[in-house]
Simulated scan of single mutants.
Amino acid sequence: MLLDAHAASLVAAASFTKVAEFSGLTFFDNFSFMTAKDPTPNTTNQYISRANATKANLIYFNQGAGSAFMAVDSSTVVPSGGKRSSVRIQSNKVYNSGTLLVADIGHAPTGCGTWPAMWFKGLNQGELDFMEGVNTMSYNNMVIHTSSGCYGEPDRSSQLGQALSQTCGINDPPVPSPALSNGCATKVNDSSTFGPQFNAVGGGAYTINWDTNGFAIHFFSRPNIPADILSENPNPDTWGLPLMRFDFGCCPSNHFQDLRLIINTALCGKWPISNWGDSGCPSDLTCEQYVLSTPGGFNDAYWAIHSIKEYKNNGK
């Protein structure tokens, strides 16, 4: 019996070899630190250097929890017109097709004014945001952005998430129109994937499987991480439907080259501001006013990352 291309790829994708791990005391050695205002319009944070973040206790390795800690400043009242300190890191390494990445995350930032994200960005404006949300949001939004000429497959029945739009190109007309989201977005209606509930159970593991057919993103909450992931013998064939599957049928794969992993927490910006009233955030303060005047509002605005492991797909 003939196998179609997708089925054949699943057979070939069963073998993976671990090639790198970011964890422990050397976690931050694998990244460069952005030192600038967040480039997104209307944000109210300043990214600081590794030296300054270490001095301010915004980054360190938590020996007891076994996790790299990366936080927003939660102790300073910032004067009007100022910026609250935050951290943005970008991997020194680039990633391409044939990669399976497993990110074991114990805690992700949450709270009014926050915009945390774990994402990839590379050449040709190719971008894959696999963990992202704002304010007190309790679900994950995944999105792909590219240069012109990239669209999502109309049939997205092979994923668990809700597809919101098919147009990935930042300058292309939206499909459907009007678009429900910017970029090829997928909403995950599962409170364990992001926000307070994600943190309450100790987070979990996100996996990004990138082969010549496209991307598949799975998530497993802490109690449900499969044994094959824990034993470093990942077998995506056994993981069921992904939260998001993005095939390259309507999007040339050359939109995604030399992607770097980015982890950051922005503050305010268009999305948190537009979502402010629906998030239970203070109605008597704007997002900017809250961010600058309420340091205690950022006690939960931190990442705790146990490890990021990279596997090579021996079939792709």
Rank of each mutant, 00 (worst) to 15 (best):
A5H: 01
A7P: 03
V11T: 02
T17R: 12
V19W: 07
G24H: 01
F27W: 07
D29S: 14
F31A: 08
P41M: 15
K55F: 15
N57P: 06
N62R: 13
S67Q: 09
A68M: 04
V77Y: 00
V87T: 02
Y95G: 13
V102Y: 00
A103N: 01
H107C: 10
G111I: 10
W115Y: 08
A117N: 03
A117Q: 03
A117Y: 12
F120P: 11
K121R: 10
G122L: 05
L128T: 09
F130Q: 00
G133I: 04
Y139N: 08
Y139F: 06
N141R: 09
V143P: 08
S147A: 07
G152W: 04
P176M: 14
A179F: 12
A179P: 03
N182A: 13
C184Y: 14
P196W: 13
Q197W: 08
G202Y: 11
G202M: 10
G204M: 03
W210C: 08
G214V: 08
F215W: 12
S231G: 07
P234C: 11
N235Q: 08
W239F: 09
L243Y: 09
D247N: 05
C250F: 03
C250N: 05
C251F: 05
R260K: 11
L261G: 10
P272H: 11
P272I: 03
S274E: 09
N275P: 02
G277S: 09
P282L: 15
L285W: 03
Q289I: 04
T294P: 10
A301M: 06
W303D: 06
A304I: 11
A304M: 11
H306R: 14
N313K: 07
